[in-house]
């Protein structure tokens, strides 16, 4: 794609830094206990990096970062092509799509984008899980996963909101 070719050294370095932060956040999050024990319920701190990248670099470069993050996280934690890998991929893809739409509509602040992304991530995960297990029974997780997405979305959105001006100033 032509837009990748235009990646300057400055952008490359910043993207690589953001990628490293996203992967480390994901690893740290894995070690932290989460009060609600439910498959798919996570803090989703790495999502704040996705929001920052989306607002700084636009769509194409965020896809690049997300793909790299998912592959790296798969190699480090879940393993490639395992059920958890596909579910994470589905969640990331769906949340990315909705966050792009939310970003372009200019209707929401970073906090709103974060909430929408968290919700979409949880719903995407659930859809892929239902497809993998060939059952609709998992829909019973939906209400709780939606509610959890609100605080986690607000926290990732707030991180993005406060980190964005600092990154803009310094790079």
């Amino acid at each position: 794609m032509p837009s990748y070719a235009k990646l300057t050294t400055r952008e490359l370095v910043l993207l690589a830094l953001l990628l490293a932060i996203a992967v480390v956040l994901r690893l740290v999050e894995n070690a932290l206990p989460f009060p609600i024990q439910l498959p798919g319920a996570k803090l989703g701190l790495a999502n704040s990096i996705t929001i920052i990248t989306l607002m700084l670099f636009g769509r194409a470069k965020t896809v690049l970062l997300l793909t790299a993050r998912i592959l790296l996280v798969a190699l480090l934690i879940t393993g490639l092509f395992t059920p958890s890998f596909f579910i994470g991929l589905g969640g990331a893809a769906f949340s990315f799509l909705l966050m792009v739409l939310a970003c372009q509509s200019h209707l929401f602040s970073p906090v709103g984008i974060g909430i929408l992304g968290a919700c979409a991530h949880n719903c995407g995960q659930l859809v892929i899980a239902m497809f993998l297990m060939q059952t609709t029974a998992l829909i019973s997780y939906l209400p709780l996963l939606l509610i959890i997405a609100i605080p986690t979305g607000i926290s990732t959105g707030l991180i993005a909101k406060y980190a964005l001006p600092i990154i803009r100033q310094n790079f």
Binding site: I139, P143, I147
Partner: peptide, 23 residues
């Protein structure tokens, strides 16, 4: 946070409550 953000939160809470009550 903007007004739309609060509307979004409200919508999600309604969706979650609705699906919970339905089940």
């Amino acid at each position: 946070m903007r007004k739309n953000d609060y509307l979004l939160i409200l919508l999600i809470i309604l969706l979650a409550a609705g699906s919970h009550l339905f089940m």
